[in-house]
């Protein structure tokens, strides 16, 4: 499903730039749940961005569903990205739009009609327990609710792969556990789930396969 071979990502900058990822090689099978672990700055976010075709590797190959992201035309990349549901560390919610408008965004991008989009948005909101708040504005939601809103937006178009960057970073333990269960439930219906985290509690609960990163290298 996702396959990295000898992938290096260098960001330009002073002194030859900064290598966020160094010859990473890894494979993720369909239906797997995988944790990317490591300290801040180890390259977890970069790895996720490369998977979701938001960034292109400096060298090496990234394959997503057998498509080589490194050599695809720029105009084809959006269609690769639609395979993914993305949960960002800072949520990236749109604070000038209602809950409903936030969740419907991926469907508008793909081009669903209003009726079908409405059904899917409500299904997603129901799944995360926010159905009653579809008209609310995101600022009026609690931290945990905002996190769940981000999840609803990530899953509304039924992606085959869910990528989450530090999903439990700002949550208390109870919420974090609840979130873990939610992610596990997606995995159980066949969604490939990749989570970048250093939350050891979550790790011990979900018992996923772990890929450890240290200073841009895959160490296990």
């Amino acid at each position: 499903m996702i396959s990295f071979s000898q992938v290096t990502k260098r960001y330009p900058g002073a002194g030859g730039g900064y290598e966020a990822l160094k010859s990473a090689t890894l494979d993720i099978q369909p239906g797997e749940m995988v944790f990317i672990t490591g300290h801040s700055g180890a390259g977890k976010s970069t790895l996720l961005k490369l998977m979701a075709a938001i960034e292109r590797p400096t060298s090496g190959t990234v394959l997503v569903n057998h498509q080589n992201v490194s050599t695809l035309r720029a105009s084809a990349l959006p269609f690769v990205r639609r395979n993914f549901g993305l949960m960002f560390q800072d949520h990236k919610l749109l604070y000038d739009r209602s809950v409903y408008q936030n969740v419907v965004l991926p469907l508008n991008i793909i081009g669903y009609n209003a009726a079908e989009a409405g059904k899917r948005v409500r299904a997603a909101l129901d799944k995360v327990g926010l159905l009653a708040k579809e008209k609310a504005m995101p600022v009026t939601l609690s931290g945990g609710e905002q996190q769940r809103l981000a999840i609803a937006r990530a899953i509304v178009h039924r992606p085959s792969i869910l990528l989450a960057d530090e999903p439990t970073a700002n949550l208390d333990a109870a919420y974090a556990l609840e979130l873990g269960e939610l992610l596990r439930s997606f995995n159980q219906v066949g969604v490939t789930v990749v989570i970048a985290t250093h939350d050891e509690q979550l790790q011990s609960r979900l018992q996923p396969r772990c890929i450890a990163l240290a200073q841009g290298r895959v160490t296990q």
Partner: peptide, 16 residues
């Protein structure tokens, strides 16, 4: 800008 960046990351094409 925020909205455009998010839209692009989740698969919006430039024409969209």
């Amino acid at each position: 800008r925020a909205e455009i960046e998010v839209a692009k990351m989740i698969g919006a094409t430039n024409p969209f």
